[in-house]
Write a protein that binds this DNA or RNA. Structure first.
Lengths: 172, 172
DNA sequence: TGAAAACATTTTATGCTTAAAACAATTTGG
DNA sequence: CCAAATTGTTTTAAGCATAAAATGTTTTCA
């Protein structure tokens, strides 16, 4: 096998790995750091939501999606947006309907579809929580300059695109 | 209360918010993008670990910690490193001992402490998985240039420090 | 038209995760 | 020395999460 036949981005690394056991330690470290940041912030937000509002993060996240959709969303939409499994949404919605935060109805045009939206109570509670939530986030990122924020946005957009491409390659 | 007593970074934003309802939309968007990237990559890694090795991500993460500690770690150490609750580790370890991947013993000098380490089997299996895992990560980040990686590392380090500071302020 | 494919959701089985309380062992300070 | 505080772990109760199979509905297309 000629050395020049090396291609970039090949997933089947069988032969490649034998020839050149490449060092991906930097990417690995980057991934761990990304994960650490997210875990740290997520844990902080989770704790504050529980302490101040006695609400879980998943419930808050779901309400956040619905707050942006006054006409409601289908369970599938929610599932895709939140990047969680369908079954997960089913249970989450169940509990939020039970607590009076969500309203759920079957679509008139397609009886497979469930449309959910925030109740008046749900919207009011979410708005209160969201206001505090925003200040928490601002505080957690307080040491970043506006330039840092812009730069991170850019690099994370690139990261997201790269990961999506890779995920697509695998499914293909 | 004198007006001059206002301090920066105050979490009690009662009066401040009324005066200047500051806009933190950028930080919020940054946080959501960070979360999206992590969720995306994590889901991808989780799926591949399950498909190729029939192992869960938490199990893999725990084994990864132990692989770096040939002499073993206490449950507390693991819990801190993985940033998960103590009870979480208890259950995870239980199952990994059951499956023969981990060895657990009570410390001789302090009978409260449980020391766990990888068994020969556990280490062998982890090494196999880790090799693949590294190529997956490299592929997921493939579109980032070395410069991008360095810059992201730097900005995420800054983010982590900022978040830790904020978390500390709250606990204080 | 009508069987097959696609779709939206729910169910099932299993495992992960947390916060808080309980338990057990060690350390500390009067 | 010993009661109190601290530390390490486990237990408990509740909820979150996934993958895969099951259910019911709509669409496709031969």
């Amino acid at each position: 096998m000629p050395a020049v036949s090396d291609s970039i981005n090949m997933l089947d690394s069988e032969t490649k790995a034998v020839e050149t056991p490449e060092d991906h330690a930097e990417e690995l470290r980057l991934w761990l750091r990304l994960l650490t940041c997210t875990t740290l912030i997520e844990g902080e937000v989770r704790g504050r939501l529980r302490q101040r509002f006695d609400v879980t993060l998943p419930r808050f996240d779901l309400m956040a999606q619905l707050d942006k959709a006054p006409d409601g969303m289908t369970l599938s939409d929610v599932s895709k947006r939140m990047m969680v499994s369908n079954g997960n949404v089913t249970g989450l919605v169940e509990r939020l309907v039970e607590s009076g935060h969500l309203d759920r109805r079957t679509s008139e045009t397609d009886r497979r579809v469930q449309v959910i939206r925030l109740t008046k109570l749900g919207r009011a509670e979410f708005r209160r929580m969201a206001a505090d939530h925003e200040t928490w986030i601002a505080d957690l990122f307080a040491d970043l300059t506006p330039k840092d924020v812009r730069e991170l946005m850019r690099l994370l957009a690139k990261t997201k695109a790269s990961a999506q491409k890779s995920a697509g390659r695998r499914r293909a």
